[in-house]
Design a protein around this nucleic acid. Structure first.
Length: 550
DNA sequence: CTGGGGAAGGGGCCC
DNA sequence: GGGGCCCCTTCCCCA
């Protein structure tokens, strides 16, 4: 007995989830475009992806091999088994697709492209026939992988390699990049990052130092993490909550999906989100092993339970089948001056939703205004065409962040001063009649304005000194390093692992600090009372207690 | 309920 | 660009 459309329905759902960013657990970076997807699906489609998905939530692809528009088609193919909905796909397009498919070891897509290219030499083959053939092959392979359950992160390299050989046998062709052995690529299993390796083709090099040569390498590794590299980062589950799907504007998920995703998914999510969340936690019963171990260790050693704030909140909502909204609430940035980052990106077609979320979460209009202060990402094509990076002050669009940054520098300080003065004057001229009349406060300097337009005008000045935007949330940073570090937290990349308890950190310093928990070292001593502390910041906090008036 | 301590997250800044 | 450190902040636990 077999339900005939089961695999197809499953893929359809997955593709819709991708369109929504729901449960997406990996981000693929292609030039300036970010694509969200499911590790399972990518790993089931390509040995190359499979080897990369084990350890990284961020994959950086070689832009010589694939560009954003081609990868979009590739991704559509992976999720649908169909060629992209291009009216008249040119041979050039198929060549680009073939290159990308070969590079990514998507053998069925490569075969399809070759078939199409060969066919075009004679006569155009029946498109539907080709698509159906591809679909049958694709469906068979994917459904097998999917029904096996979650692609085990601990699945060994031999298995991957075996399957790769099978695929290669099946499609034994002159794959230009098929020699990229997954086993070599997955050197990360022994502790090195794959992010930087992506796209290096046959020039594999296990030297860690080379890992950072390409693109964004946010995954700097701990010197010793062999014991934990195979775990799914709990952060990845948190960070890539459905609310983060704004990035999935880049996913496109083909126009037909976008047009239907709301109808289809709203029902699904309204009814089943909690169920799915529960299922997710069932699939990953040890979704947070490092922390669990840490807590166990704490209990064992009678340490206080670790307070993890936001993560705990998310964990609770997940365990109880919490709604998307509740997760968002738990994820709100708490730091001062935050530009409401987690709300500030959204699907291009989802503007209404963003408004709804803002209202639901009780933000003031001024807060939600932060949503406008982002560099345009993929998904905003309808607004700014190819120039996705927009200079806020002057509104000009640029095709890349680099071009935008170069442009931003052309705004002179003089120009800024004039603007600032004008803003100050208008601010002073406004009646000082209390917060009700000036409810829009600058997130940087706390100046208040009576309307969002004035506030926005004022805040422009701040951004020019913050030339490094986060490509995920749009938040601006003064230094590239800070932005990179910030990106790590988005992506759940915590390369520094504690050998004792498995807890992971985004910064080496944090790990050093944390290790004192295990060693019992308390190097910071209060000169007034002799109290000792593991963290200097806690000593500072403690000293305030001494100095503050009783 | 409250305040203090422990532990952790994030941003700024300097080197 | 990365490391180290500082600051502010949050959350949890416990007395």
């Amino acid at each position: 007995m077999e339900f005939p459309n089961h695999a197809r329905q499953l893929l359809l759902q997955l593709n819709q989830q991708r369109a929504k960013g729901f449960l997406c657990d990996v981000i693929i970076v292609v030039e300036n475009a970010l694509f969200r997807a499911h590790k399972n699906i990518l790993a089931a489609s390509s040995m190359y992806f499979k080897s990369l998905m084990l350890h990284d939530n961020l994959v950086n692809l070689d832009t010589d091999m694939v560009n954003p528009s081609v990868f979009r088609q590739v991704l559509d193919f992976i999720y649908t088994g169909r060629l992209p909905s291009v009216d008249q796909p040119s041979d050039k397009n198929f060549n680009a697709l073939l290159t990308a498919a070969s590079y990514l070891q998507l053998h069925d897509l490569a075969a399809l492209c070759r078939k199409r290219l060969k066919g075009s030499e004679n006569a155009l083959p029946g498109k539907s026939a080709v698509s159906n053939g591809a679909w049958e092959l694709h469906k068979k392979e994917l459904s097998t992988a999917v029904t096996q359950g979650h692609v085990s992160s601990s699945e060994d390299c031999d298995d991957a390699h075996r399957q790769g050989e099978q695929l290669n046998d099946k499609l034994s062709d002159d794959e230009p990049f098929a020699s990229s052995s997954p086993c070599v690529l997955s050197a990360g299993q022994s502790g090195s990052s794959n992010v930087g390796n992506v796209g290096r083709g046959e020039e594999e090099d296990e030297d860690d130092e080379d890992d950072q040569e390409l693109g964004l390498d946010l995954s700097k590794k701990s010197p010793s993490e062999s014991s934990v590299t195979e775990e799914i980062s709990p952060q990845s589950l948190r960070e890539e909550s459905p609310q983060s799907d704004c990035i999935s504007g880049a996913n496109s998920a083909s126009s037909e999906d976008c047009s239907t995703q709301h109808q289809d998914l709203e029902g699904v999510e309204a009814m089943d989100l909690g169920e799915q969340a529960r299922e997710q936690s069932q699939v990953l019963p040890h979704a947070d092993p490092p922390r669990q171990r840490a807590r166990q260790a704490n209990r064992k050693k009678n340490w206080p339970r670790k307070g993890r704030g936001k993560m705990d909140a998310v964990e609770q909502t997940t365990q109880t089948g919490g709604s998307e909204e509740s997760k968002v609430g738990a994820e709100q940035p708490s730091s001062r001056g935050s530009l409401s980052s987690d709300r500030s990106f959204h699907c291009g077609e989802d503007g209404e939703n963003e408004k709804e979320h803002s209202e639901e979460s009780g933000q003031s209009e001024g807060e939600s205004l932060g949503a406008n202060y982002v560099y345009r990402q993929e998904g905003f094509e309808a607004v700014v065409g190819d120039n996705l990076y927009v200079c806020i002050p002057c509104g000009k669009g640029f095709p890349s962040s680099e071009r935008l940054n170069a442009h931003v520098e052309t705004h002179t300080e003089e120009e800024l001063c004039i603007k600032e003065e004008a803003e100050d004057l208008s601010a002073r001229a406004a009646p000082a009649a209390g917060a009700e009349l000036q409810p829009f406060e600058c997130s940087v300097c706390s100046k208040s304005y009576k309307d969002p337009v004035a506030l926005r005008q004022h805040e422009k000045g701040h951004w020019l000194s913050r030339p490094f935007p986060c490509h995920i949330c749009g938040k601006m940073f003064t230094q590239r390093g800070t932005m990179t570090r910030h990106m790590r937290s988005h992506l759940g990349l915590k390369p520094f692992a504690c050998e004792e308890c498995g807890m992971r950190f985004t910064r080496q310093y944090r790990l050093t600090e944390h290790m004192r928990v295990h060693s019992g070292e308390k190097p910071y001593e209060c000169q007034l009372c002799g109290g000792k502390f593991t963290q200097q910041r806690n000593l500072v906090s403690h000293l305030r207690m001494h100095t503050s008036p009783a």
